[in-house]
Design a protein around this nucleic acid. Structure first.
Lengths: 217, 217, 217, 217
DNA sequence: TATGAATGAGTGTTCATTCAT
DNA sequence: AATGAATGAACACTCATTCAT
């Protein structure tokens, strides 16, 4: 008997086909950007007829948006799983910094996709309703975390939660995306394991010094 | 007589032709990236025959490298002009942070070019001799600045100058390049003047808190 | 119980399904021609599965022929209803001219379908048995009309009934199908109501002058 | 020596290339209409690289307009050569009727192109400045001809010159473009030489009867 | 040094038709 | 009888680069 669960290519299973297209598209868009990505390549990798891609997603740009939405959903979901609300403020902040670093490190495709979208001035994301609703609990979470820290006396007052998260993201994102030119400039491989570890510690140090009332680190 | 100073298009002036090509190419590469840039568009804007572009620069990728080298030279030269060595350490550091922010803000093409190059894993820059030699005084300058601050007792010990500069760059670069998706996520225009000012202050605050011995800000 | 009279989509009613397909196809073929018509669009409009279209009509070209046959049947039936045999020759001829003009005016899809078929050199119609049999009474009718007029002394002798009908059709068809380019050439909108009326009168005048023994118009 | 006049493909001669493209395009558009025409086929027939087609004409639709403009220019130029102003009114009118018929007969591509353009509601022609200016002397010529005939007492008063020319065109155009379906309906080949001659005479008769004061034909 | 003409491989997208259920 | 999934060939248009003068 031919099993429906055969991994490579379950015939006539719309949901599975959709998923295969999304997966292949994420890979291709991350590797080559929106313009550089090849629809043919996506179709080949997804083992579908190119036509299906248009049936399921409309066109290349809409497919890109779908990929982007999924990528944002993935990181926000993973963040939720940290249950930062159940941790002490300092622990929670440290956990968030580390999570962000390691998520960026392990998901370079997320960085590339976000990068691509910004090169297009968020043209696609602006049209997305999902994105906005997906981020309101996230924004609230950071705000709550800071408030709790201030309340327990460990965090300074007056820190803008948005600026803080942007900084946490920035310190990791920039290093990881720009480590290639930086490696040329500094004449050493900033992508090597020890260098990566150094960077992570530098980030933790910088953020905590900024937030903690008395950073006796 | 044909004047060398005739602005629009001095015939048969190799240096001027080269400059016009570089200027047009910088614009085009910054706007559309390496793959998206059009050789025809560059030639049209530079008011030269497309063939000349190949005579002067070999091919599209070599032209991209030339543009990139010039862009790096420009920012490093502007940095040199700050004469940070003549300022007190704290003033010098503040000046560097501000310079970096405003340079990024006023030269989005620099950010785009660096971004493009990193998408290609610094493939072009690696082949460049100019880049490396151009950065050694820059790296030294940051190191000297930190040492002076430590010596005068205003900066903490043990700060890695490379990490520090990367952080200064990161905090501005990430915000400016990613402000489009961030604006969608936060539901407000992070590119507006007040938001830009808020960000600059947040960056200064964060860096100084990290470096200063007792940040009584 | 499922009613046969349910308007929107009576399930499993072969005759009704066939009609819905034909109606949607007529619209689509008239609007976009044979090549331009989209099978998907026809299926969507007919609210049927695309596959059914092939079950009922074989393929796109056979469907086109079915549409065409129906369109010819419609105009010939409407003509029969004029009962020209019951009118005086002059009245009958005038009625035929007016009918032809207004039918063309109110059924642009008929003109478009005939036009499409001629672009294909009547490839489909040639295979149709229905068309030939459907036209023999029509041809006879025009002939009889002329004979009666000659017999009663109002029409000239020697008029070829086929040429006459072709002229009647031509004078209206050409104006209506080509009014777009003609409007550009003459610099005014030949599709406006007054222009349409002018044209109708010019046609009646021309045909009657050609047929009547002494056209004291 | 290699001659520049070598017919098949004079290399690097822009004007000749342009002409070859136009010629091939006219053929292809006439045969298959705007949508049905294949850019590849045009390029192959013109023995050019497809890219040149876009360099010279922008895109398929602009090429279509260029073809259309040329086709109109050709017939209007040929009409001018009749020097109708130098003939007696009746002779001139007869010459115009015959010319129109034979031009349509010998240039089926003109009929097809005009037909295509009307299927698109003269979308392209509306954008053309050339067309309008090219037709004002033509419109004037027909008007003058009628006036002269009225002045010399051979033509009736009150004939609208535009309606008259439209009728002359209609009587030939409709027959020639629709002779395929008409042949099926009448059961004989209306494209055969004797049938064509019959039609031409019927047209001349009809037009003259309409215009002449006392048509003693 | 400089030019305008030319190329060929490749892009995203579309479509009538058939398959599997 | 009816459906949703799938196909493969084609289409208009683009691009970096080279040729001929």
């Amino acid at each position: 008997m031919t099993s429906k669960n055969a991994k490579p290519k379950p015939a006539r299973d719309a949901a599975a086909t959709r998923k295969r297209i999304l997966k292949a598209a994420k890979r291709e868009f991350a590797m080559k950007g929106l313009a550089g990505a090849r629809v043919d390549e996506i179709a080949d990798r997804a083992e579908i007829n190119k036509r299906m891609l248009y049936v399921y997603f409309g066109n290349k740009e809409d497919l890109f948006l779908a990929v982007l939405e999924e990528a944002y959903a993935d990181i926000r979901n993973a963040e939720q799983e940290l249950k930062l609300g159940h941790l002490e403020p300092v622990e929670a902040l440290t956990a968030l910094i580390r999570f962000t670093w390691f998520y960026y490190l392990k998901h370079p495709e997320f960085l590339r996709l976000v990068n691509s979208e910004n090169l297009h001035r968020a043209r696609h994301l602006k049209r997305s309703a999902r994105i906005k609703e997906m981020h309101s609990p996230f924004v609230k979470m950071i705000g709550d975390l800071l408030k709790r820290g201030v309340a327990t006396g460990v965090f300074r007052r007056g820190i803008d939660p948005n600026q803080l998260y942007i900084s946490i993201a920035a310190l990791g994102y920039y290093y990881l995306t720009n480590r290639f030119t930086l490696s040329v400039i500094y004449g050493r491989n900033l992508g090597a394991a020890p260098a990566l570890d150094d960077r992570r510690m530098a980030i933790e140090d910088m953020v905590l010094r900024t937030v903690l009332k008395s950073p006796d680190i």
